[in-house]
Amino acid sequence: MAESVYKVIELIGTSKDSWEKAAKGAVERAGESLRDLRVAEIVKLDMQLDEEGKVETYRAKLKVSFKFEG
Rank of each mutant, 00 (worst) to 15 (best):
E56P: 10
A30M: 08
M1F: 01
V5Q: 10
L11Y: 00
F68G: 10
S65H: 12
A2F: 09
S15N: 10
M1I: 04
L11T: 02
R29K: 15
V55Q: 01
S15Y: 11
K54H: 08
E32I: 04
E41T: 12
E69K: 09
K24T: 13
M1C: 07
F66E: 04
V27Y: 00
G31H: 00
L45P: 08
S4W: 15
V39A: 13
E52V: 05
A23V: 07
S4T: 06
Q48N: 03
V5P: 06
E56G: 01
R38A: 14
A40G: 02
V43L: 11
R59Q: 14
T14L: 14
S4M: 15
K7P: 11
E56L: 13
K16D: 14
A2D: 12
A23M: 03
R35F: 11
S4V: 06
K61C: 03
A26W: 04
L62V: 00
K16V: 10
K7E: 15
K61M: 11
V55D: 05
M1H: 09
Q48W: 05
F66V: 01
M47F: 05
F66C: 02
Y58N: 09
L34H: 03
E56Y: 15
T14R: 12
E32W: 05
S15C: 11
L45D: 08
L34Q: 05
M1T: 01
K21Y: 03
E10V: 08
L45N: 11
Y58M: 04
A40T: 05
V5S: 12
Y58P: 04
S4N: 08
G13T: 03
S15M: 07
A30K: 02
Y6Q: 09
G25H: 03
D46P: 03
E51R: 10
V5H: 14
R35C: 07
A2Y: 09
E69V: 12
E10H: 06
K21A: 10
A26E: 13
E69I: 09
A22Q: 12
E51Y: 08
K44E: 14
L37H: 04
Y6S: 05
D50R: 06
A60P: 01
K54V: 02
L11R: 05
M47I: 10
Y6P: 06
D17K: 13
K54R: 13
F66Q: 03
R35A: 13
V64P: 04
L34A: 05
R38K: 11
V27T: 02
A26L: 09
W19G: 06
L37D: 10
K24R: 10
G53S: 06
K63W: 00
L37W: 03
E3Q: 14
I12K: 02
M47T: 12
L11E: 04
A40V: 11
E3W: 09
G53T: 04
E51I: 07
T14Y: 03
E69R: 08
V8A: 15
A40H: 04
L62I: 00
R59P: 00
S18T: 07
R29P: 09
K63Q: 01
E56C: 09
E51V: 14
D46L: 03
E3P: 07
E20K: 14
S15L: 02
A22S: 08
D46V: 06
D50M: 11
A2V: 12
S18N: 06
I12A: 11
G13P: 05
K67H: 09
E20C: 04
S65I: 08
A2W: 10
L62P: 00
L62T: 00
A40D: 03
K24V: 14
S18Y: 11
E3I: 08
L45Q: 13
K63E: 07
R59S: 02
